[in-house]
Design a protein around this nucleic acid. Structure first.
Length: 783
DNA sequence: GTACGTTCGATTTTT
DNA sequence: TCGAACGTAC
């Protein structure tokens, strides 16, 4: 046995195990080590072979980032003899963590890869927090509250504090509290100003108290608790944590928030072996706490950091890379980088001007059909939009055209009421102090525990300063309650306690089944006999199925499928929607597109107001900066072909309004763009030709209830407008200066200025006999 | 306790 | 426009 490489007493064993593997880690890997760097370009190789001290990698879109991280880890293990379980690699999504793990297994073998700490910030911290729960005043069985749980807690706190709910909005409060927490502040040290600040502070303090009392943490706490432990100078846990890892690597570093940053920094005090990999140009989660300054100012905290820039793009055509670079370049304060590629030129980027969202959808649908007919694989086609609400029109169009699609994001499986109900039962059994869960199920299905009974119970819990569950017992001899409600509460308590006995003996799926039938929940759904109830039954079936799957999976890995581990997994992972079949076109928001790539990409709604999305109060323009980065992310997802669409008129949230083209379109390099104007787009000066009403063919009357698009709108009847300098419109669809135009009242004139922002669009025109006039674009014709 | 009408509000989303 | 979330009436 080669023991020499296994470390002596290590504070932390490999994830999920007691002891590190006994095998010599580097056996057989040494020979591979040389080949790691052979397949890399020079900057990639520099990042991979760097072994000591801070490292900052700016990884441009499609520059082989994951490859660099995984190779670097392999290199650390094989060449520098770093024990795998002393390496921590954190990501933001489970998907990214899974991919990293998979590639590591491939590279260095499953046995070695298994010992590396690879996971999301939250999963990693959750695992560590189970170990150190006592140090932060929790028990090992703490539960994790998701947003709706958080919302419920806040609402209760506001009510308890007797605030007027109209004055103190729970959503708003929660948002502010999360922001404080993401920046590492508690109710005590937040920057509270004025009346608003005082209120916030009270609610914040109440919220924190409620969580502690419930033995619960929110997502921020998972990281916050670990950060405070790791930073603490006096606690033994702090000492231990600071000695756990020899190397910490962070992926998507531009998305880290203050707390996450402080945590990883605290974990490597001795070695300062922190490797940050990210791209400030792709920082799009500011509203979630992500702070792009952390990557940009990394060198302030680590002045000796080695900086590597990966600028060669291996994903997209040259035209796409140029366009993306042109869109991001006007960004202020960005780290200087020049994305480039050796890939072929590729086809021009198509900028399409449609009349409205239906016209836009018709174009996309037509093109999709064409691409599919030409043999493109549906899973290589994607449509992105800024807001989910924009998917509906496209969906209708796709459905009529029978284009198979799936929408990513939106309503999630684990947000369904019945799923949450059943999970709440399970969580209460594990951690009865969780008030939010208890309140959720105390009367589901109906057991006659109504509002007034609950008020009593809540009151009693408040008097005793205990959880609702702990207040249940004493209600038995409470004089303030009538006999009937007392009995009901007692029955409920008995029910919970009897289930609790099964919590450790039954598997999660069996327990869930038991609860579902035994409580009468199942029966009540079956009785209802409606389509909705059927769907709910189906969802529960699916939930229990997912539990069984989980149990099988754990059995294969030789681990125990406990209730606690299942619940943790459920709250820390999104949904089961991944890995569906590959025969569908993907529709998603640009945010969810990050990290993905497709051959052909359509981006909808390139209009000022929509994308960049505009809302009041962006004085410093930082929102606009982030929108620009979002545009960069959207463009860099495409491998071969990119379609950017805009509608001159768009109805959204019930309001129809004309939108000027997105300012981002104006940044595109003219020679890499083809302009298309759909047949229906009523462009200023060129009215859409009046066509005879098309006669409906017999076949299409099937959908006559609401014909989405008359045949006249069908692709490919569009005009192509070459970006020629004499054209009335420039490449962003705006009129050019110097263009001769005719106005009905003022006669002929020349455009002297263009207002690209206003909506509806206006231009300034010099009319020889009237002087300069500002007029609406739609009143002009080409002269 | 449920069924229905009404209001309100509506980027982006992981964990 | 549309959906969820809330309040009122049975």
């Amino acid at each position: 046995m080669t023991q020499k490489l296994t470390p002596s007493a290590s504070p932390l064993p490999p994830p999920g195990r007691d002891k590190p593997s006994k095998e010599g880690y580097t056996e057989g890997l040494m020979t591979q080590a040389a080949s790691f760097t052979a397949r890399l370009n020079p900057p990639q190789a520099r990042a991979v072979s760097h072994s000591q001290g801070p490292l900052l990698v700016f990884a441009g879109a499609g520059s082989g980032k994951t490859r660099v991280i995984t190779y670097r880890i392999a290199n650390l293990i094989a060449r520098h003899q770093v024990p795998p379980h002393r390496i921590l690699a954190v990501t933001f999504t489970n998907k990214a963590a899974g991919e990293m793990r998979e590639r590591l297994e491939h590279l260095i073998g499953p046995k070695v890869a298994r010992d590396i700490w690879v996971g999301t910030f939250h999963a990693t911290c959750s695992r560590l927090l189970r170990r150190y729960a006592a140090d932060v005043g929790l028990t090992r069985d703490f539960v994790i509250y998701d947003d709706s749980d958080q919302h419920a807690v806040i609402a209760r706190v506001i009510k308890d504090l007797k605030y007027d709910e109209r004055e103190v909005n729970p959503k708003n409060m929660l948002g502010r509290i999360l922001k404080e927490k993401q920046e590492g502040r508690g109710p005590g040290d937040m920057v509270a100003q004025g009346f608003q600040g005082k209120t916030l502070q009270e609610v914040f303090a109440g919220y924190e108290r409620a969580l502690k009392l419930a033995n619960a943490v929110d997502f921020e706490d998972l990281i916050g608790h670990m950060m405070r432990l790791a930073e603490s100078k006096n606690l033994p846990a702090g000492q231990e944590l600071r000695n756990c890892f020899d190397h910490v690597l962070v992926d998507e570093f531009q998305d880290t928030n203050q707390v996450q940053y402080r945590l990883v920094r605290a974990l490597v005090p001795r070695t300062r072996n922190l490797c940050a990999v990210g791209d400030d140009d792709q920082s799009i989660y500011r509203w979630r706490g992500g702070d792009v300054r952390l990557i940009r100012n990394f060198r302030n905290d680590f002045p000796d950091a080695t900086v590597v820039k990966l600028e060669q793009n291996y994903r997209s055509t040259a035209r796409i890379v140029r366009a993306a670079l042109a869109v991001i370049s006007p960004s202020l304060e960005r780290e200087p980088k020049q994305l480039f590629t050796q890939n072929e030129e590729g086809s021009r980027i198509t900028v399409v001007t449609a009349r409205d969202e239906h016209d836009e959808a018709a174009y996309v649908t037509g093109r999709m059909r064409q691409l599919l007919d030409e043999g493109a694989s549906p899973d290589q086609l994607a449509v992105f939009y800024r807001i989910h609400a924009m998917s509906r029109v496209l969906e209708e169009s796709f459905r009529i055209a029978r284009i198979p699609y799936r929408v990513i994001g939106g309503v999630r499986f684990f947000d369904r009421a019945e799923v949450k109900d059943l999970l709440a039962y399970l969580r209460v059994l594990l951690n009865p102090r969780s008030d939010v869960d208890l309140l959720r199920i105390i009367n589901v299905p109906a057991r006659g525990i109504g509002e007034s009974t609950l008020a009593r119970l809540t009151e009693m819990a408040a008097e005793r300063g205990c959880s609702l569950y702990d207040a249940l017992g004493p209600t038995a001899d409470s004089p303030t309650l009538a006999a009937a409600p007392r009995k009901k509460l007692a029955t409920f308590l008995d029910l919970l306690n009897s289930y609790r006995r099964f919590a450790t003996t039954l598997t999660p799926s069996k327990l869930a089944e038991l609860i579902f039938s035994d409580t009468g929940y199942k029966h009540s759904l079956e009785e209802e006999n409606s389509a909705e109830a059927d769907a709910r039954l189906q969802n529960i079936k699916e939930l229990i199925g997912s539990m069984r799957e989980y149990e099988e999976e754990m059995a294969e890995a030789g681990e125990a499928a406990t209730l606690a581990s299942y619940l943790e997994r459920v709250t820390l992972s999104t949904s089961a929607e991944e890995a569906k079949d590959q025969k569908q076109v993907s529709l998603m928001s640009i945010h969810s597109a990050k990290g993905l790539e497709f051959d052909h990409v359509f981006v909808l709604g390139l209009e000022d107001g929509i994308f960049p999305y505009e809302r009041p109060g962006d004085e410093d323009g930082s929102d606009l900066e982030e929108e620009r980065r979002l545009a960069y992310v959207a463009l860099t997802r495409a491998r071969k072909q990119l379609f950017l669409l805009r509608a001159t008129n768009r109805t959204l949230f019930g309001f129809s309004r004309p939108n000027p083209p997105s300012r981002f379109l104006r940044d595109l390099p003219r020679h890499d763009v083809s302009l298309i104007v759909t047949e229906n787009a009523a462009l200023p000066g060129r009215r859409a030709p009046i066509r005879p009403m098309p006669s409906w063919s017999s076949g299409s009357s099937f959908h006559s209830a609401r014909p989405a698009s008359p045949p006249s709108r069908r692709f490919p009847e569009e005009r192509q407008v070459e970006p020629d300098p004499s054209s009335f419109l420039d490449e962003s669809g705006l009129p050019r200066k110097g263009t001769r135009v005719i106005h009905q009242r003022f006669g002929s004139g020349t455009i002297t200025a263009v207002d690209g922002i206003s909506s509806p669009p206006r231009v300034t025109v010099y009319f020889p006999s009237w002087g300069e006039k500002k007029v609406l674009l739609e009143h002009l014709k080409l002269g």
